[in-house]
Design a protein around this nucleic acid. Structure first.
Lengths: 224, 224
DNA sequence: CCATGTCTTTGCGCTGGCGCAAAGTTCGGA
DNA sequence: TCCGAACTTTGCGCCAGCGCAAAGACATGG
């Protein structure tokens, strides 16, 4: 039995007891912060649903340069590639904080999809949203200036994991300048300089691995 | 009845007569060059399979800057979003040359997927490959230099639609400097300069909207 | 309370690549 | 055969953003 607040979109439309049975077929795993769940180029054996915490999906090029493809939060599924193809993981998954996941092997997932055809259809929908997200980010990185991209990244993270408090909206994961740079397709230095400028303008408030967006409206306008 | 050389991966595993019946459920469309099949932000009503020619999928940002997401050739499916979600097309599809497609409406596709569950599974596989492609391109545009990206784009197009002849491998679609720039996330000028340099080195041979890769090996090495 | 490691900031110089402008090339149609 | 439109090339100047270096801020454990 797993303590999962958000039921994954992949399993929506299923009855509670069916959902429980599906969870029982999976393997629970617990990850301390900064632990790898799977690595790029490893054979893809399992797909995972995050039940607590969050994963960061990154991709490396030949020269060791890194880029963050997306963050995966509670209730979200990842490594769908392991469900269908006998391939390798195209990305690396690393826990951001303490994180819990449920993993299903390829045969198990196949069996579940046959038993509950909803799942395949839902999975299609989830993956399509993901394509749209990465296509949008591809467009941005090709056509937008660095500071616009940083603004959009912040807004994206804010919508995904923003916690409203008296000061503004806190992005509720440990987020270093380097992490934000990897997520925006730029460098540590440029992120630092840009955030400093925005802090002076009163748009955000920053701390060590912590960002509060105090004026989301200004950021949205800036991102155009 | 449609003259389609390559059967789409989406319909593989189906018997010939089933395939024919599926094609009969679709609507044939013929497009002259540079015609739009559908436009970004239009309600997504149909998904399409290309049976002849090729489509270019592009995406615009707010300032009118354009980027090419991918090319779609004979036998490939596109606008899968129309199958599952009641959303809008996230990209614009434009014919490169004279092109023929078959289109299916959302209800028809849903019905076909229920009748032939293979299709949903195949579709998942196709879409996953597409995610991997765009994720890889996202990595490249974030981490690689412009000339490396142009090299990779050329190689990608070469593998996709290369025709070997005595001189080398001809990329067999009309491909302007501007198109290659849109596909590589750079500008017309930079592409022109880069191709000129490569031509001097004897790696390629160029003409108006035409590129022959005479030394693929050198290009591969350059792209690292 | 200090020590050590990690994260952040900022000055500075450099350069990859953008984009204008203008000339050259190619193609199709009249 | 000539014209005009579309495509391509190249010189030139400029600047956004990179990345080193060095100093500062913050957190954790002994």
């Amino acid at each position: 039995m797993v303590d999962c607040l958000t039921k994954s979109d992949v399993f929506k439309g299923l009855a509670e007891d069916q959902y429980d049975r599906i969870l029982d077929r999976g393997m629970n795993k617990h990850l301390p912060p900064h632990q790898f769940l799977f690595c790029q180029s490893d054979p893809a054996s399992q797909c995972y649903m995050v039940t607590k915490g969050q994963l960061k999906l990154t991709k490396l090029n030949e020269n060791g340069k890194i880029v963050t493809i997306r963050y995966v939060g509670s209730g979200e599924l990842t490594a769908a590639v392991a469900v269908i193809k006998n391939g390798v993981y195209p990305v690396t998954a690393e826990s951001v904080q303490e994180t819990e996941v449920v993993g299903w092997s390829q045969p198990t997932m196949m069996e579940l999809m046959r038993q509950f055809p909803e799942i395949a259809i839902n999975l299609l929908g989830v993956i399509l949203s993901r394509i749209e997200d990465i296509q949008q980010r591809y467009l941005e990185v090709c056509t937008e200036q660095v500071d616009q991209r940083i603004a959009r990244s912040l807004l994206r993270l804010m919508r995904w994991k923003g916690n409203k408090n008296k000061k503004g909206v806190l992005i509720d994961i440990p987020l270093s300048r380097q992490s934000l740079a990897d997520y925006s397709g730029t460098t540590l230095y440029t992120v630092s300089r840009t955030l400093s400028a925005w802090e002076k303008k009163g748009w955000i408030e920053t701390g060590r691995e912590r960002i509060i967006v105090t004026d989301p409206h200004a950021l949205v306008a800036f991102a155009e």
